[in-house]
Simulated assay, not measured.
Amino acid sequence: MNYKYEYKSLEERESLITTHSNLFLVEEQNITDGNFLIFVDEETKNQLLVQQTIRGRVNTITAYASLDNNSVDSLENAIIEYETNLITGGIF
């Protein structure tokens, strides 16, 4: 569960952090509507960590896939250049 608390001063901010020490502070918002601290409970924190881990793995896989595509493209370009040089009599 998420808990969002507004504060108006640094003292109030510190008090909220102390009062809700059983929760996990995950975000602080300083926006035109006010200043807010957002806390989550243990279960929500664990869900967020799982989501973050999955996102990281997806990004890693995407990066490897991108590298692989670049490698394939480079190899294809080298083959095309080689074949072109063979056909035209150019030096490879």
Rank of each mutant, 00 (worst) to 15 (best):
Q52S: 11
L86T: 03
N85E: 04
I38C: 06
S71Y: 04
R13L: 04
V58A: 12
L49M: 12
Y5N: 07
V58Y: 10
L10Q: 12
Q47I: 10
I31H: 08
L67I: 04
D73S: 15
G90F: 03
A63L: 10
I79C: 03
I17N: 01
I91A: 10
I31L: 13
T53R: 15
T19E: 15
E6W: 01
L23N: 04
N46F: 05
I31F: 10
G34I: 05
S71T: 09
F39W: 00
D73T: 14
V50Y: 05
L75S: 12
F36H: 05
T18V: 08
L49K: 14
A65G: 05
Y5C: 05
N69A: 15
V50K: 14
E83C: 09
E81H: 02
E11Q: 14
M1W: 05
N77I: 03
K8R: 14
V26D: 01
I38D: 00
S21R: 08
H20Q: 08
E81W: 01
R55G: 03
V50F: 10
N46C: 04
F36I: 03
Q51V: 01
N22G: 12
N85G: 05
T84E: 13
T88G: 03
L67N: 15
S66H: 10
T53I: 03
V58S: 09
N2R: 15
A78Q: 12
E83L: 14
G90T: 00
N77H: 09
T19R: 15
E83G: 03
E12Y: 07
D33C: 09
F24E: 03
N35C: 14
S71Q: 13
A63M: 05
S21V: 02
I17V: 15
T88A: 09
I38Y: 03
F24T: 09
T53W: 09
N2T: 06
N22Y: 08
N30T: 09
A63R: 14
R55Q: 10
L37Y: 01
L16W: 01
D33Y: 10
E27Q: 12
L75N: 13
E11R: 13
H20S: 11
G34P: 08
R55A: 12
L37T: 00
R13C: 06
Y64G: 01
T44K: 15
N77M: 11
L23S: 05
S21C: 10
E43K: 15
E14P: 01
S66Q: 14
